[in-house]
Design a protein around this nucleic acid. Structure first.
Lengths: 131, 131
DNA sequence: CGGTATCCACCAAGATACTG
DNA sequence: CAGTATCTTGGTGGATACCG
């Protein structure tokens, strides 16, 4: 199903996509994009293409397996492209597509917001934990 | 640690927060915010406060347990407030804080982007799956 | 360098039942 | 209505080893 139909017997699809609907494609894409590692990978690529190893080093804590999975998933969604130069030693570059760039830009804003709010966040947590 | 220190023996903290650093508070907040259910809850509250049951119905597929956990986590981060009216029958409202609203707004933009890109996403997936 | 394959531990999360 | 408690399982993701 391309978009959500809230009318019975709707003749055309494409009425309105809805992230809240568990069957909507945008919900799946949203979950893919906001995934633990996928979001950080998108973030890392905002400033330009990167190689596998560069990404691995930049995204602290990611394993090769998880990075590989995240890259495949994002490529599948059409958010990034994989370019194998077929050289020795091997060189593979990952770059954002236009859609990927749009999304990554929003994630960047989100991250900037949170980075700037670190003192607030820590105060709030401490207060909550103190009951 | 409040922010990341990339110099050895840095005398003051607060240099620069970095989502890529696994020990940075902003990374934890980022993961909390982009969590599967938390992000949808924030999204649902953009248009105003909601009750537990309303959220449960709007966020399709969420269980009471997961919703409860997500709400507690977001309250801890200071992104939403819980208001118990202490009445019978019980009524509890959840509303975004200013910071929560900022974050939810970015998530809204992200969701809008993805909802509008549904046809692209589905085409890309189909092409990828066909090898 | 840029990955894949396999094994396995752990925990996120669903189902269910119960309470104020 | 607004949750909490307990149990159970399947998938996530880390560790390790190996391949082009």
């Amino acid at each position: 199903m391309t978009a959500e139909a809230h009318e019975t017997d709707a003749p055309s699809q494409e009425l309105v996509a809805n992230v809240f609907a568990s069957a909507c494609s945008s919900r799946a894409a949203f979950e893919a994009v906001t995934g633990k590692w996928a979001s950080l990978v998108l973030l890392a690529l905002v400033d330009g293409p990167q190689r596998f190893g560069e990404l691995r080093r930049q995204v602290e804590g990611v394993s090769e397996k998880m990075l590989s999975q995240a890259l495949h998933a994002l490529e599948r969604e059409g958010l990034l492209t994989r370019t194998d130069h077929g050289s020795r030693p091997p060189r593979v570059d990952y770059a954002l597509t236009p859609l990927g760039r749009d999304i990554a830009t929003r994630l960047r804003e989100l991250a900037d917001l949170l980075q700037g709010a670190v003192p607030d966040l820590e105060r709030s947590r401490a207060e909550y934990d103190a009951h």
